[in-house]
Amino acid sequence: MLDRGARSLRRTGTARPDRAPEAGKRTGWARHAVPMTSVLMCRPEHFTVSYRINPWMRPEQATDTRLALAQWETLHAVYRDLGFDVRLVDPLPGYPDMVYAANGGTVIDGTALTARFRHTERAAEGPAYGAWFRAAGFAVHEARHVNEGEGDLLLVGDTVYAGTGFRTDPRAHAEAAEVFGREVVSLQLVDPRYYHLDTAFAVLDPAGGPGAVAYLPGAFDDASQEVLRFRFPDAVVVSDDDAAVLGLNCFSDGRTVVHAPQAEKFAADLAERGFGTVGVDTSELRRGGGGIKCATLELRS
């Protein structure tokens, strides 16, 4: 039987800043055993929206750094209580988007492919994350082509699904295949609101399988939609409304999906499939075009 706190979390589906879910209370939701999840995060101490490099960003509208910090702290606490190994990289003054750690690189089998950003406003983030990878003992490959880390390179089973169309250069897909020795499947993004793959495609079960992902069909061109239907016939197909609150920008350890609480239908679909769900509001970070997954870089040893 789940304890009272776990029953409450399952009922509400949302974590409050003063009450994160308790670790080790997920047995009622477990799909299968998973290894410890290790992630890298960056505190949004300098978060603001002072320029516009995606449709979500509106510099003319005020942002609340304290609220962004509070929401980030809740996400951090949820990860710790889920038993994750959470590591931190120091934020750089003047780089408000550094909170979106997923863009800082891609780490698979102990090797880090550094990010190379398309926009000059974020250029210094790549070297900063690269330095962290080296200090942490990862083998580091300096990117030759523009890629924006796990924003566009997502691992499902043994295959990397790679987005392009707005940020990552398609030549970086071949580079990732070379660096990681994995099959890389290219997916073409066509809706500027979903400029990174991780805003339109979510990995629910990192081990892979037919129902391992969720996605928004309209974010992809026809050929990519055909690839997704063929490879993931049992995928969760997400509505426009749930995608528009960055519901697909979620993070899963294979048992529990941490997601935007505003994506209510998506959360219900996940629960029907046996996933635990925890809603964490990152609406202030969404002003910069990112959410839960953007704030989370998985470190795979």
Rank of each mutant, 00 (worst) to 15 (best):
D198L: 02
R58C: 10
A268W: 11
D240S: 12
E150N: 00
P55G: 00
R4K: 15
Y194F: 15
G290K: 13
C250V: 09
F220Y: 06
E125M: 03
T111L: 03
W132P: 02
R134T: 01
A143G: 05
V39S: 10
S50L: 02
D18Q: 11
L75Y: 14
L67H: 12
A223F: 09
G218V: 05
L2H: 12
D152C: 10
H173R: 12
H32W: 11
Y195N: 02
G105S: 05
P21L: 04
R31A: 02
D234E: 15
G83M: 04
E22S: 14
G130V: 02
F230W: 14
P96R: 07
N249W: 05
L297S: 00
L92A: 09
A112G: 03
V89Q: 00
P93C: 02
A244P: 00
V213R: 02
L67M: 13
A207C: 08
F166K: 04
R52H: 14
V146E: 09
L216Q: 08
F251D: 12
G208F: 07
E60K: 12
P35N: 12
Y195I: 04
I53M: 07
G276I: 05
G130C: 01
E226I: 01
A143I: 01
A131V: 02
D198V: 01
T111D: 08
D281W: 01
K265S: 15
P35I: 10
I292W: 09
G149R: 00
L299R: 11
R171G: 11
G94N: 01
T65G: 05
P217A: 07
F133K: 06
H141Y: 08
A70Q: 15
A102M: 04
W56H: 14
H196K: 02
D221K: 12
A33H: 05
E45Q: 08
G289D: 13
E73L: 11
P127S: 07
A200T: 10
A212Q: 00
V86G: 09
L113C: 08
D3K: 08
R144V: 08
L82P: 02
E142D: 10
P127F: 03
E178N: 04
R144P: 04
Q61L: 15
A207S: 15
G83L: 02
R171V: 11
V190C: 11
Y95V: 11
P217I: 10
